[in-house]
């Protein structure tokens, strides 16, 4: 049963932020740290979304995705790379057989201000080019105007256009501003067919934050408790260091449990995070603090 989105689900901002502060007090040491660092690396959607993304740049990113740290065979690969639609074919070709997913932002990323037809066409194009994950943006203007059905319907239409590809719905929480809006947009996306919900495009500040992500995790949890279906979560933008990533994992573990500690259900949309995770992994293994000079840039 689809809820009435006009009805807000109350969220207390300070309470959410206090809960997050408590996750941040978790101290992750030793083996549990190494485990989490490697897990986090496997959850990275290695991302480049720039107007200057040449084929050469995207190729380098794909190589980095497959060989994050070739010197150590124990180091896992990342989950996916995330590019614009016109670089999907290239990426899919390079990554073929690697098990690394190709995600593409579509739907007039990052503003979403194209016509619905053109956005659907873009999705179909990206899927045809080989993307198996689509990261769409919602029409924030419609959401903020209270036209929740419009947002619901556009997501549903794009989900249909995705065909077999997984759909991640970007809420652009930095523009929604309040946690109650974030919660509502999460519910709309989930009920309209999202496989993942995602915080941000990375083009707006603030991008992903832990409190916003927690509110989205609560939406995912409520949906699971009600239906038994598991929706994935992807915070994106602003997560640059391993310590922050581990705090996110603590939050996921203590909110949704171990089932969500998998790239199938949790991703980090990030670029520089991967190398910090690698540095920390090698630090854990060798006991020596690391220098960026020893880690390839993507």
């Amino acid at each position: 049963m689809i809820p009435d989105f006009k009805q807000a689900i109350p969220v207390d901002q300070i309470g959410v932020e206090e809960r997050v502060a408590r996750f941040r007090t978790r101290s992750i040491k030793k083996e549990s740290k190494l485990f989490a660092l490697k897990l986090a690396l496997q959850m990275v959607d290695l991302t480049t979304l720039e107007g200057m993304d040449s084929p050469g740049k995207v190729r380098q990113l794909c190589d980095k995705a497959m060989y994050p740290y070739e010197a150590d065979p124990d180091i896992p690969k990342v989950a996916a790379i995330c590019v614009y639609p016109n670089r999907v074919r290239l990426a899919a070709g390079v990554l073929k057989g690697s098990g690394i997913h190709v995600a593409s932002v579509a739907t007039s990323f990052p503003s979403g201000m194209g016509t619905l037809e053109s956005r659907i066409d873009e999705v179909k194009y990206a899927v045809d080019e080989g993307a198996d994950e689509i990261d769409m943006v919602i029409s924030r203007w419609a959401f903020l105007k209270g036209e929740y059905d419009y947002v619901f319907d556009e997501i549903a239409a794009i989900k249909e256009a995705c065909g077999p590809a997984h759909l991640k719905v970007i809420l652009e929480t930095g523009e929604l501003e309040t946690y109650e809006n974030v919660r509502k947009a999460s519910d709309i996306a989930i009920y309209a067919g999202a496989d993942f919900i995602k915080t941000s495009t990375g083009k707006i500040s603030p991008a992903a934050t832990m409190p916003v992500t927690l509110v989205m995790l609560y939406a995912i949890r409520d949906y699971y408790l009600k239906t038994g279906s598991k929706i994935g979560m992807k915070p994106a933008g602003g997560i640059r260091d391993a310590k922050t990533a581990l705090h996110y994992l603590v939050m996921v573990k203590e909110t949704l449990g171990a089932d969500w500690l998998t790239p199938d259900l949790f991703r980090f949309g990030a670029s520089s995070l991967a190398n910090d995770l690698l540095m920390q992994i090698i630090k854990q293994k060798t006991g020596h603090y690391q220098s960026p000079d020893y880690f390839s840039i993507g």
């Binding site: 101290s27 040491k29 549990s32 239906t227 038994g228 573990k253 171990a258």
Partner: peptide
């Protein structure tokens, strides 16, 4: 019906924090 459909979550598996 929805209540009975509630799923359980597993908090104590996979990743336990080492002593700190």
């Amino acid at each position: 019906k929805e209540l009975t459909a509630r799923q359980n979550l597993h908090f104590d598996e996979l990743w336990a924090y080492d002593p700190a």
